[in-house]
Design a protein around this nucleic acid. Structure first.
Lengths: 337, 337
DNA sequence: TCCATCGCTGAGCAAATGATCGGAGCCACG
DNA sequence: CGTGGCTCCGATCATTTGCTCAGCGATGGA
């Protein structure tokens, strides 16, 4: 395979790589054996890896898509990405993603952690699978108001309550609607200590668990009655592709300021940016454009997504030139031991 | 392949291995990511390697037999083994092995080195290929007397002279026959300062370049007139399978003391043992039994051999139980980076 | 129920590794 | 033939890694 190497080089690289990787010698021993300096051996090993003389393969279970995860991390500068296996049925797809998210939280959360939580159908599935082995003394706090017109399990307060229940932690509810009827009303609401306190706590969270919403007529925001069909259409016209916590962005990831945003009771994009680990949970039901937009906004640190969306998002990212080059070019494996 | 792992374990191992080997994260970063201690990550990586989740393969050129070399090293506690590709023609086979030996010497020898040299057809081919890029100020010294009845290029003195010529070093000849006619004669010879000095120098060599001889009627010792057909037959009857420098051993590697040995003018097995690196060069023309015997004697540090003999020797070693267990069992790859 | 044993865990340390940097040799060009 | 730029080399240092060891909790037997 590595045909551009001279025969001698090829032989030397193979010999040294074999001695190192198969026989388990140290670089120093090999250096002595071949009458080379230790750094030279290290460079040769690097070259052997790079040129394909050393072939490191991970026998991953077929249901894992580690390569997709790596591409997502690299393309969007995520600290982590988890791709869950494809399911045909939307509901079991959502469950698969939620299971991954729950597992992630179980690993990530420790005593004293504060977790800001959004609404959403995907997010709403997470509590069912969140079953830490031992008690975690952490706090779940609503990062967004509620809405009476959807099922309880997709409201942030309810999600917080169940998460807390399953790990022995506490839940702090936000006693406010997601959208109020006027700017004045929102300002009055924010003056209420109960509301202000909860939002302050959410803003200081170390972890946020959020869903990503779309902008079609059947999106959660519309179904929950938070936004009218007219409003969502106006957002679409303004270029909106998706939202986190009611904050809409366009395809390039830029925040869209629309009239409705001043009636929103939730953390802002800036609040989210200050949170250490923002975990976004998305399954097939959301449009890839929405995911791409939010990822480009740069607020998400950890993406938990299904295989189908992962592929499509990466595809879209490659097609449309990103506003600020975040090259998706594969860089050669950095390490080889 | 790794089917004895539980599904969760398998997934975790694959994830961690991917992060480490493909993405190039450090163990510490991975530990933080998965909420594990660093040593734990290191153990998991070890397990991943061991269980086959991580598969490290060396794309060696087809003419190299690195696996055979490793088996030889392990089975006979050699510090190095070089297997040269098979040739059908005995002469080109000898040349291939000699080329490897010459390359080895070029790497191994430095200014000030003293090399003790034996006779033999295989050894005799080495000088032709010994062409160091720069001058090496070393000394080649005969470790054995000569014999007038064979071609000059297989006599130690001549081999030394040519090796020295090709690297700009010095040669010290042994002015004595390999075998003399009586014990008394030998003792008288060893009293000669010219002879004694050369043998003392050879005994202090840091490297020895030796051939391995057989015990059939056509072996070098017989052809050169050093031993009669009767003598070699007596040696065979005593269990001898091969020799280095006229010192014969049986299949178990034990030295055979026969009448002729007191008429030998050469380094002894004990002298060889004291030499840091004893390099044995053998090609197809020698019997594998001879090689096996000599290897079991434990004097050889580096074996340079053709593929056919390498396989046969390993096969024989597995069949017959060695006197002192030198297990040929493959131990799992020690390293994985 | 108590105690011995086993295996697992993570702190700490020594070895091994990867990376930087000045210097030497080499080539192309002036 | 001199010179500038280039690459390659190995001394050296910071980081990473492998490993040991004492302590802990689980397990099982008395």
């Amino acid at each position: 395979m590595p045909e551009d190497l001279r025969q001698d080089d090829y032989e030397l690289l193979a010999r040294i790589a074999h001695r190192y990787y198969v026989d388990g010698r140290t670089q120093e021993e090999i250096a002595a054996e071949f009458a080379l300096s230790r750094p030279k051996v290290q460079r040769l090993l690097e070259r052997a890896r790079w040129s394909g003389v050393v072939d490191i393969r991970i026998q991953a279970p077929p249901w894992l898509h580690l390569d997709l995860e790596t591409q997502l991390r690299d393309a969007f500068r995520l600290s982590d990405a988890i791709v869950s296996p494809s399911r045909t049925d939307p509901q079991s797809q959502r469950e698969a993603v939620a299971r991954s998210a729950a597992g992630y939280l179980e690993r990530r959360l420790h005593d004293g952690a504060v977790v800001a939580v959004s609404h959403g159908r995907d997010t709403g599935e997470v509590p069912r699978f969140f079953r830490p082995e031992r008690r975690i003394d952490c706090t779940f706090v609503s990062a967004m108001g509620g809405s009476p017109r959807v099922d309880a399990p997709t409201n942030p307060n309810e999600i917080c309550r169940t998460l807390a229940e399953h790990c022995g932690g506490r839940a702090e509810s936000l006693y406010a609607p997601a959208y109020v009827e006027s700017v004045e009303m929102r300002d009055r609401l924010l003056e209420q200590e109960a509301v202000a306190h909860t939002l302050r706590l959410a803003a200081r969270a170390s972890v946020a668990l959020v869903g990503i919403g779309g902008t079609d007529d059947g999106c959660t925001m519309v179904r929950s009655g938070c936004l009218s069909l007219e409003e969502i259409a106006r957002l679409r016209a303004a270029g909106a592709v998706g939202d986190v916590l009611g904050n809409y962005v366009d395809a390039g990831g830029t925040l869209i300021s629309a009239p409705h945003s001043s009636r929103l009771v939730a953390l802002s994009i800036e609040d989210l940016r200050r949170i250490d680990t923002v975990v976004a949970v998305v399954s097939e039901t959301e449009k890839p454009q929405a995911i791409l937009g939010i990822l480009r906004a740069g607020v998400v640190d950890v993406l938990i997504v299904d295989e189908g969306n992962a592929r499509t998002v990466l595809e879209l990212a490659r097609e449309s030139v990103p506003p600020r080059a975040a090259g998706a070019a594969a860089h050669p494996a950095a390490r080889g031991r």
